[in-house]
């Protein structure tokens, strides 16, 4: 498996679904990274869905990143496909680095068949096309 970070960069304000039971802006930096790894410990729960991404390093060690997603209730209301991610699946993951070590805010996952998996707030879903922008980096 390809290891470590494919690249890291300071993000351009990418409109991730910035909704959660706590402040995304306060818990995660604007620094975006891309990892490749295997999904374990997948949990569809409130207040945050999450999984662990196991990333093999070149030196033979393995890092475990806790990847935080929206609340299950929020994912459900935006019509998220809960079958799109599964334990044991290898993915390429883009996300924002958390202030806690090895934490990441989910941005986009690319699954083995090339499918892009994203999340959006149900608010955005509701107001899509209305001109309203529900995302806020301050959330």
């Amino acid at each position: 498996m390809v290891s470590k970070y494919l690249w890291a960069a300071t993000v351009f304000a990418m409109p991730f679904a910035a909704r959660a039971h706590h402040s995304v802006a306060l818990n995660f930096s604007q620094d975006e990274i891309v990892l490749e790894g295997t999904i374990t410990n997948l949990r569809w729960i409130n207040p945050h869905a999450s999984f662990v991404l196991e990333v093999d390093n070149d030196d033979g060690t393995t890092d475990q990143w806790l990847v935080e997603m929206l609340a299950k209730i929020a994912l459900d209301r935006q019509g998220f496909n809960f079958d799109s991610l599964a334990e044991g699946m290898d993915i390429q993951l883009t996300g924002r680095v958390g202030y806690r070590d090895f934490t990441l805010r989910f941005g986009e996952a690319i699954t083995p068949d090339g499918t892009s998996v994203r999340e959006r707030s149900p608010l955005n879903q509701r107001f899509r096309g209305s001109g309203a922008e529900a995302d806020s980096e301050e959330q």
Partner: peptide, 25 residues
């Protein structure tokens, strides 16, 4: 301290505003 002082991690609202402010529910 954002990493330790948010009672939301324990499923407790930090205050009245937190209950009204929740965007996803």
């Amino acid at each position: 301290d954002v990493l330790t002082d948010d009672p939301s991690y324990g499923c407790i609202p930090s205050g009245l505003g937190r209950a009204w402010d929740e965007p996803d529910t």
